[in-house]
Simulated scan of single mutants.
Amino acid sequence: MKVLIAGAGRLGTQIAQVLAAARNEVTLVESDEDRVAELGSLPLVRVVAGDACDPELLEQAGALACDLVVATTGRDEDNLVISLLAKRRFGVGRVAARVNDEDNAWLFDQRWGVDLAVPAATPLISLIEEATGATDTVALLRLSKAGVEVIETAITAQSRAAGHTLGEIELPAGTVVATVVRDGRPTVPGPEVLLLPGDELLLVSHEATEQEIHAAFQ
C-alpha cells in the first residue's frame, strides 16, 4: 500500500513508522525544515519538505499513486485542504484527517473529501486500524500478508527497563526495536540508548506475542 502522511508531528511520525515497518511504501510531508532535518534518518520512510496544502508539492510527493492519505497537521484548516485535494484532485481512495478542535468536527466529512475523521484523542491503534482497514487489535497493527506485528510499549517510572540501555534488554526472538519516541521525536534505536520514563517504543516482531514484548520492558 502507498501512503502519504501530511504532518510530521508525533502522531504523523508514529503512523509513518508503523506503516513503513509493516512494509508499506510511506511518504511523510512536513513544512518545518528543522523538523525535516531531524527526521532525515527515519528508517524506511521517505521524508519530503514542503507545504502539503500545495497541490504541486502533493503531486511531487506521489499523491496520484497513493492508496491512503492521512492529514495529521496541527491545523484543522490545513487538514481539510489536504483532504479535499487528495480526494478531488488526486482521486485518493481513502483519506483520513485529524480533528484538532472538536468544534470543527462537523466539517470533516465527504464534502471536504474526508472518509475518516479522527478526533485528537483517538488512540494510535484505532486510527491506524480504521484508516487502513485492519481490524486485529491484539497488537498495534497486524497485516497478515506482511507476516509482521508492530507493537507499542511505554516506559514508566515503574518499568524495570527504565534507566537501562536498549542493549541491556533481552528481547524475545525475532524482535527488533523500530524506534524510540521521546518528547514526540523519534530516535534511532542504538544499543546505547538509555530508556527513560515517558519513552514510547515501537517494536517489530515476526515471532513474539504482545505479552512477551511487554514483559521484557515492564
Rank of each mutant, 00 (worst) to 15 (best):
V177T: 09
I128H: 00
L85N: 01
R46E: 14
A22N: 13
R10H: 08
V180A: 03
T135K: 09
A146I: 10
R88W: 02
L166F: 08
G50S: 10
V148Q: 06
S159W: 04
V138I: 13
K2C: 06
A52D: 07
V18D: 02
P197I: 04
L195R: 01
A161Y: 00
G198N: 04
A6V: 06
A71R: 06
Q218R: 15
S83I: 06
D101M: 00
E59S: 15
S41Y: 09
N79W: 04
I213N: 11
R10F: 01
D136N: 02
W106H: 15
G62V: 07
L80M: 07
L58W: 04
V177S: 05
E210Y: 12
R98A: 07
L141Y: 10
P191C: 05
A97P: 06
S83L: 05
V99Q: 13
L141N: 02
L28V: 03
E170I: 13
A120I: 06
E149C: 12
D34I: 11
S144T: 14
I5R: 01
E130Q: 15
V188T: 11
N79H: 08
G147L: 01
D183H: 15
L171N: 08
G190H: 08
G74D: 12
W112Y: 15
D136P: 01
A21S: 14
L201V: 02
A63K: 03
V181W: 00
Q158A: 15
L4S: 02
G167I: 04
V138F: 08
T135E: 09
D103F: 05
G74T: 03
E56T: 12
A173Q: 12
E59D: 15
V99F: 12
T165Y: 10
A121K: 04
D32P: 05
K87A: 01
R182H: 08
E168K: 11
A131E: 09
G93N: 10
F108G: 08
V176N: 01
W112S: 13
G62M: 05
P119A: 07
R35I: 11
V3W: 04
D199N: 04
V48Q: 10
V69N: 11
L64V: 00
T132E: 03
A22I: 11
I151N: 01
H214L: 14
V193R: 08
A52P: 01
V36M: 05
V118P: 06
T209W: 02
G62L: 06
G62S: 01
R160S: 03
E38N: 13
A117R: 06
E38K: 05
D101R: 09
E212F: 09
H206D: 03
L116G: 02
A8Y: 07
L64D: 15
R160K: 11
P191S: 13
A120Y: 13
A173M: 09
L194T: 06
R185Q: 12
R111K: 10
D76F: 09
V69Q: 09
A216R: 04
I82N: 03
V114C: 09
D183K: 15
I125S: 13
V92F: 10
N24L: 11
V150I: 12
S31I: 14
V138K: 10
P172L: 10
T187F: 13
N100F: 07
A65M: 00
T72N: 00
A6C: 06
D51V: 11
